[in-house]
Simulated assay, not measured.
Amino acid sequence: MTTHETLKQIEELQQRCEEYEDLSLKLNWESLRREPGGGGAEWFVTYEDELLVGFIGLYSFGSEIEVCGMVRPGYRRRGIFSSLWKRAQSYIARQGAHNVLLNAPAASKSAVGFLKTLPLAFDHAEYQMKWHEEKADERSAFENKILPDDHVILRPARADEVPLLVALDSAGFGMTPQDAANMYDEFVEEDSNEHIIIELEGQPAGKLRLWTEHHETWIYGFTVDEKLRGRGIGRSALLQTIQREKRSGNGVNLEVALDNPNALRLYESCGFVVTNKQDYLRYVG
Results as ranks from 00 to 15, higher is better:
residue 190 E to Q: 07
residue 223 T to I: 01
residue 223 T to N: 05
residue 134 E to D: 12
residue 201 E to Y: 04
residue 163 P to V: 12
residue 219 I to G: 03
residue 156 P to G: 13
residue 220 Y to E: 00
residue 232 G to L: 11
residue 207 K to R: 09
residue 209 R to C: 13
residue 179 D to F: 02
residue 167 A to Q: 02
residue 172 G to W: 06
residue 195 H to K: 03
residue 174 G to D: 04
residue 204 P to S: 15
residue 179 D to C: 08
residue 160 D to Q: 07
residue 196 I to S: 10
residue 157 A to E: 03
residue 205 A to Y: 05
residue 182 N to L: 13
residue 216 E to F: 06
residue 148 P to Y: 09
residue 170 S to K: 02
residue 206 G to V: 06
residue 237 A to H: 11
residue 160 D to E: 00
residue 229 R to M: 14
residue 144 N to G: 15
residue 199 E to T: 10
residue 136 A to P: 00
residue 190 E to A: 14
residue 200 L to H: 03
residue 233 I to T: 01
residue 238 L to T: 00
residue 144 N to C: 15
residue 204 P to R: 11
residue 227 K to N: 12
residue 229 R to Q: 13
residue 216 E to M: 10
residue 235 R to E: 01
residue 193 N to R: 04
residue 162 V to L: 08
residue 159 A to V: 04
residue 194 E to Q: 14
residue 179 D to M: 00
residue 197 I to Y: 08
residue 139 R to Q: 06
residue 133 E to D: 07
residue 189 E to H: 07
residue 175 M to K: 07
residue 229 R to L: 14
residue 216 E to C: 13
residue 201 E to F: 08
residue 239 L to S: 11
residue 176 T to R: 07
residue 151 H to S: 15
residue 212 T to S: 14
residue 212 T to W: 08
residue 234 G to L: 04
residue 198 I to V: 14
residue 149 D to Q: 09
residue 237 A to D: 11
residue 200 L to C: 11
residue 208 L to I: 00
residue 239 L to P: 02
residue 201 E to G: 10
residue 194 E to A: 14
residue 152 V to K: 08
residue 230 G to Y: 06
residue 188 V to F: 05
residue 184 Y to V: 00
residue 195 H to P: 01
residue 228 L to P: 02
residue 183 M to I: 01
residue 192 S to A: 15
residue 191 D to E: 11
residue 189 E to R: 02
residue 231 R to F: 15
residue 169 D to T: 03
